[in-house]
């Protein structure tokens, strides 16, 4: 950061001579200190997981949820400045709801990501605002079944105009990550926050390509997500944390098309396996040492 102190980094929307917007880069720094957040796009759904560092004993356990529902089928997890995250979520909810009132159908993931990307980008354009100090992961499931139009009367034709298109399947799981610059990509596995490097390394080992027959299932995804958060936490081992996880499947799947918290029993099982996997690694290392 050689340009610190030259003045080009004091105001948003100002380019430095070498074409950088420093305020956006500093916003990214705010994200890099936040708890690790990940998303995994599995064959039949999406998992969102978050490492929530416990900053005080006085906090109520298992309260203070941070993965938010934006529309029935869509969730958002973020890392960085918490209030900025709430701002992002409330905008995403407004987008989802206005889409519904215009099109009488839920907003597709790609459109939501696009609109949120545009919104976040707008906060890099003016010196009267600052960029968002968060990176947000948007995950959900666009219904494959043709949803009935909100408030539909009667059943209408089964196929053809006003009905469904036979054999054509749309929708499926989606996962996007929006950065402070407004940049967003679609992901198979996304990670942000303090432990993102370790998390990315783990995500890359997973089979997540849907065209590959071995693409992992949602339930496997839940277990992997828990394990990855535990792995990512290794660097700040001394600090306590809570694992928060949500998931969303197709209408035919375990969540019935809704974005909701992973049931307690499944989460605890995933955490147990995660701890075991970590211990296993330690033992391997110890064994090697002994040898």
């Amino acid at each position: 950061m050689t340009s610190i102190g030259t003045g080009y980094d004091l105001s948003n929307s100002v380019f430095s001579p070498d074409g950088r917007n420093f305020q956006v880069e500093y916003a990214v720094k705010a994200v890099e200190n936040g708890g690790t957040a990940i998303g995994i796009r599995c064959k039949d759904g999406v998992v969102l997981a978050l490492e929530k560092l416990v900053t005080s004993k006085l906090l109520k356990k298992d309260a203070n949820k941070r993965i938010a529902t934006v529309d029935r089928n869509t969730g958002v997890v973020h890392s960085g400045l918490l209030p900025d995250g709430r701002h992002f979520i409330s905008r995403a909810r407004d987008e989802a709801s206005s889409w519904r009132s215009t099109y009488k159908a839920p907003i597709p993931g790609s459109s939501l990501a696009n609109r949120m990307g545009a919104y976040v980008q707008a906060y890099t354009l003016y010196n009267s605002v600052r960029p968002f100090g968060i990176t947000a992961i948007i995950g959900g499931y666009d219904a494959e079944t043709e949803l009935s139009v909100d408030g539909a009367v009667g059943n209408g034709p089964k196929v053809g105009a006003g009905g469904k298109t036979q054999w054509v399947k749309e929708g499926g799981p989606f996962l996007y990550m929006v950065e402070p610059s407004g940049l967003y990509w679609g992901y198979y596995g996304a990670a942000t926050g303090k432990g993102r490097q370790a998390a990315k390394a783990e995500l890359e080992k997973l089979k997540l390509d849907p065209t590959d027959g071995e693409c992992i299932s949602l339930e496997e995804g839940v277990k992997e997500a828990a394990r990855i958060i535990y792995v990512a936490h290794e660097d700040s081992k001394d600090k306590e944390f809570e694992l928060e996880m949500t998931w969303v499947s197709a209408v035919s799947g375990p969540t019935k098309g809704k974005h909701e918290e992973v049931p307690k029993a499944l989460r605890e099982e995933a955490e147990r396996l995660a701890k075991k996997a970590l211990e296993g690694e330690d033992e391997d290392e110890e064994e090697k040492m002994e040898e």
């Binding site: 529902t69 029935r72 709801s97």
Partner: peptide
Amino acid sequence: DRLLNSLDVEENYTSPTGDA
């Protein structure tokens, strides 16, 4: 019906299961 639909979406923003 659409009004109630959006009301229901709003009602379910907060997932209460954490208290359980």
